[in-house]
Design a binder for these strands. Sequence first.
DNA 1: TCGTGCACGATTGTGCACAAGATGGGCATC
DNA 2: GATGCCCATCTTGTGCACAATCGTGCACGA
Lengths: 217, 217
Amino acid sequence: MPTIAAQIFQTLADRIAQGDVAPGQKLEEKALADEFGVSRTPVREALRELGARGLIEINPRRGGVVARISVPQLADMLEAECELEATCARLAAQRLTAVEREQLYDLHRRCAEAVKAKDLEGYLAANRDFHDHICRGAHNTTIAAMAVDLRARLAPFRQRQAGTIEARMQQSLDEHQGIVDAIRANDARTAFDAMCAHNARLSAGVMRLFSESMLAS
Amino acid sequence: MPTIAAQIFQTLADRIAQGDVAPGQKLEEKALADEFGVSRTPVREALRELGARGLIEINPRRGGVVARISVPQLADMLEAECELEATCARLAAQRLTAVEREQLYDLHRRCAEAVKAKDLEGYLAANRDFHDHICRGAHNTTIAAMAVDLRARLAPFRQRQAGTIEARMQQSLDEHQGIVDAIRANDARTAFDAMCAHNARLSAGVMRLFSESMLAS
DNA sequence: TCGTGCACGATTGTGCACAAGATGGGCATC
DNA sequence: GATGCCCATCTTGTGCACAATCGTGCACGA
């Protein structure tokens, strides 16, 4: 049985990732302690951990708020994610095992079927698995962990654009095809460029929506 | 005035980075609390933060130990650092401002002078500044922060090889020259490759020494 | 009417006490 | 003599209380 603090950390991390608590919202120790029926101590530990991972901002004596972000900061993080995933794609093109290659083709097929069926939910899940598989396929746990952490931090801001993906599913699928082809050909450089271009296009969409929402508020 | 927890975190992080406490060594809350003359609470917070950043391992109800590492894990982390810095070099070649370029040349000169004077201490400092400058020169705070964090985690294991650098100073300087030339020419791809090769060579040295020390113990 | 200063309330930082679980040594048994 | 079990001790996890600090609202003066 994990510690109470670890459970609360996980719960809060999920809430933030899924947008249940909005960026900028205060996280008060006492209120959370009451909600979970524990004392402030484990809540504090959970908040510290969230702070260390960049999911919330903690100011001394002023408590924690869900991490906010400015337009340039979002651009910064999206670019970092783009570089990270592209690096993974480059390494994956050189290192994927035969089994992993087949799994990648399977995931790509799942994406294609979801697009054909216009199944947004299924596409998002398959798409996530596709990207995850490539990150793990780099066979470097440090880089993969950095990519996962970064994606967790970006999740709250990416959340809102889920609805707009529908129109782009077909194009994304075509780009995935390019990535798969490059990996199949062990063409590291093309795999990097294809992943980079793919993520850059997605990031541009996120930026556009985010900028709009910032102007609106 | 920062909180006590923040001060203790910084102190412990420095100790770990400088090798004052060896990997695997236990960090007991009460002992540290007595040493710093505070209660266990701020010490706990500091340890949690160190744990979140990967500098120590924390097991529930068993306390924390300075992060240990296996040979494959070290290889993993060194490779990640290599990719990260090479990415920074690639971006820096495209983005360095005129002022930053001059600063880079200055830092390179400082390295060269230290080599000529056989000033190991000075070379290590100038070398660190050189690499830092390139990381910052990527103009991406997220990637730079990841590189800094990773270097902090690697510091305890890199510590031991400081003495052996002397023989490699000249070669490292030559490689730095190649990086500087590529950046001067705005040649992103060559900058990436040069930094990658440079770091790979250094990493190989770290791996060799680490493997030996693992066999010895 | 607006700006400034003060006091109060609320929240976090720290210290301390008790509870739960882990480690290590001693003892019994094979 | 070796092995497995049990218990004592120690360390960490959690709860709670007090202290320090920050934000807010109000009153006062310009």
